[in-house]
């Protein structure tokens, strides 16, 4: 594989077919190796897949990523190596694909159909020692305050987004699609919700330190 400067990558990828073809193949191969490494070494949810399946996934994703890189060549500013920038795009293509596959059946309607946003399992931190009666009452009181803050301070959209992200681990990208917005706007919506909740709970004397002690130490 030829090692090119940033400028050479751009010249070759936008040049004559004789220059473009090997450059495209070098780029695709490079992205494929990076994606395969990520899928095979860093994704604990894919360890059950045989190498041949991971290789097929990496090939498909690298193909998509190469097309995406070509579509976005004009936005490369040269602040990093070209291959690092292209790998960033490949990482996004791969992770987006994995997120969509994992959450293909997720719907906001199912998530909020049950009523209370805080599940019963949230009454204590998993694995903590059983609390005494006094601590149990104190925890129930804190739970009530958190639930009240969620109900009173947040809009429906903020509540949906925060609970899906924080409690269910739903990626912002997936949530944004389901909520008809984009990731950046959703991040800001959740950020605002966090600030409101934090202000509310602190005004009631509930700091992080206090709450973690309450749920872990007794």
């Amino acid at each position: 594989m030829t090692d090119r400067t940033n400028e050479q990558w751009l010249v070759d990828l936008t040049g004559s077919p004789e220059a473009q073809s090997p450059a495209l193949e070098d780029l695709r191969e490079r992205l494929q190796r990076g994606i395969f490494y990520y899928l095979s070494r860093e994704r604990s949810d894919l360890t059950h897949l045989p190498a041949v399946e991971l290789t097929r996934m990496a090939e498909d994703l690298a193909q998509d990523a190469t097309l995406r890189v070509m579509d976005n060549l004009g936005s490369f500013r040269g602040d990093s190596r070209f291959t690092t920038w292209a790998t960033k795009i490949a990482v996004r293509v791969a992770i987006s694909d994995l997120r969509r596959a994992r959450y293909k059946d997720f719907s906001l309607e199912n998530m909020t159909a049950e009523g209370d946003l805080l599940p019963a399992s949230a009454a204590s931190i998993t694995g903590s020692p059983e609390p005494g009666p006094e601590a149990t009452t104190e925890r129930a009181d804190v739970m009530l305050k958190i639930q009240r803050a969620l109900d009173e301070d947040l809009t429906e959209r903020q509540r949906q987004a925060l609970v899906a992200m924080a409690l269910q681990g739903v990626p912002l990208e997936i949530l944004a699609e389901r909520m008809g917005t984009n990731r950046n706007a959703l991040y800001k919506l959740i950020h605002d919700a966090r600030r409101k909740l934090r202000a509310h709970l602190e005004s009631e004397g509930l700091s992080t330190h206090y709450m973690l002690n309450l749920f872990e130490d007794r």
């Binding site: 805080l118 399992s121 204590s124 958190i146 924080a166 409690l167």
Partner: peptide, 10 residues
């Protein structure tokens, strides 16, 4: 834990 996640998030 769900509650821990929520507290961390807030």
């Amino acid at each position: 834990d769900p509650l821990r996640k929520l507290i961390d998030c807030i």
